[in-house]
Nucleic acid binder design. Structure first.
Lengths: 241, 241
DNA sequence: CGCCGATTTGACTCAGATCAAGGTTTGTGG
DNA sequence: CCACAAACCTTGATCTGAGTCAAATCGGCG
């Protein structure tokens, strides 16, 4: 029955105004009317499985994405095939800005675990920004955040020791957990050691050894992918407060 | 006499439509009408001297800037006072996006030599984008480029050897010289070795040694700040084509 | 000319990479 | 439910690219 089907679809779609990520996502700073206008064009495609690509380097950029659940990593590839992970995107975080420069993506984006995303189609973004000043302002904020974030990473890769990098990584995750109102001192890593190492510009063995050292120093507890921060002040001290 | 004064001001201001950087700068992709609307709000403050700050970390973001002449570097500072240069901005290139996230800059921007810039005030940017779809599109392109550029740098700092980094740096400068219709195989560095080293995440001594090595290998010629690329193919081969 | 900051060069050191094994967890098919 | 394979992670030993330290040289400029 078509009526039933219609109801099912509505049940499946999470409305922006009810989404517990709204304060972190596109909707931030938009009023109710703006919100309902926006969510009319937001699509929620079916979930990605672990290791599914959301998009690939060279793909036409058709949308901006917001992670709804799970975790998506983005990475650039060099001329000689080496990869550098440039971001891990948690629920409420956006990705896809790399396609703005010339209409095609310059990164690969792939799900680290089963993940769902929201899609804001680019062809509607322009007119939508025109109608909704709140969205235009939010777009600027989002891009500014992306740039600032990349600058933090440049500082990390350019100037920090391996120890400082890993501490910095844990603190960044911890802060983002808190933003999401999850526990900030106990969480699971959704990426393997190899990906952490790649992201932080070091060898897997170094990551492993540093986890062991932090644990021996009673700064964190590590159980496979499960991390517990037991001495936050000392972790902060490592990166220089 | 006020008439004379008025004429003088007009003479001093370079119009966007006559600027030889227009293909690289804000105006890219805008029609004549859009251009004249835009340039009405673009200011051209007096030139910066060497080592003048254009803005500092923490300053309220009041404008977006385009370099008209000279060279401006931007750098982030870490908690413990270390600095990482995140960009050298040549004529036609923009800076100031780091202030979009929360209205305050998170970088220092400082002139490496006597430089002039154009200013696009932020309070007028929003309404201007609303009126000029060409500008809105261009803003998106600009931000996308900034993001892609930062990703290239992350790859450089995360995965390349010192030799690859310096080669990559020279090739980037060379390509940007060409964009500006200047010689792509002979140019002057506007930054000291120390800044190159900082930007590329290595020690000054390493930069110096690599310049010497490249010169010994007949790949480039170095005379103080003057660089001549004499074997472009080999330079490209170093970074892996 | 003489000073000062920028650059180069040489000698030595070290943080972290690489190489080599071994252990553990997860998933798969029988 | 077990056997086996494939990831993933850890730990130890060794090596090396690039950093650090020290000193000489260069180039501008008052």
């Amino acid at each position: 029955m078509s009526t039933l089907k219609h109801i099912d679809v509505n049940h499946l779609k999470v409305h922006c105004k009810d989404c517990n990520l709204r304060e972190l996502c596109f909707p931030h700073g938009m009023n109710d009317e703006e919100l309902s206008n926006m969510e009319a064009v937001v699509d929620q495609p079916k979930p990605l499985h672990k290791n599914d690509f959301l998009y690939r380097d060279g793909d036409k950029a058709v949308a901006l994405y917001a992670v709804r659940s799970g975790c998506v990593k983005t990475m650039t590839e060099s001329a000689n095939g080496e990869e550098q992970i440039v971001g891990f995107h948690l629920p409420g975080e956006l990705l896809g800005l790399d396609g703005f420069a010339d209409g095609a993506h310059t990164c690969n984006a792939l799900a680290l675990e089963t993940s769902s995303v929201c899609e804001l189609p680019l062809d509607q973004l322009e007119s939508l920004c025109h109608e909704l000043p709140g969205l235009q302002r939010q777009m600027r904020r989002i891009m500014g955040k992306e740039v600032n974030n990349d600058h933090k990473l440049l500082l990390l890769l350019g100037k920090m020791t391996a120890e400082e990098r890993l501490a910095s990584f844990l603190l960044s995750l911890s802060a983002r957990m808190e933003e999401r109102h999850w526990k900030d001192s106990e969480f699971n890593l959704s990426m393997p050691r190899q990906d952490i190492a790649n992201y932080l510009g070091m060898a897997v063995e170094t990551v492993s050894r540093l986890f062991a050292a932090f644990q021996a120093d009673k700064i964190i507890e590590v159980d496979r992918r499960h991390i517990t921060i037991i001495d936050m002040p000392r972790l902060k001290a490592i990166v220089g407060e």
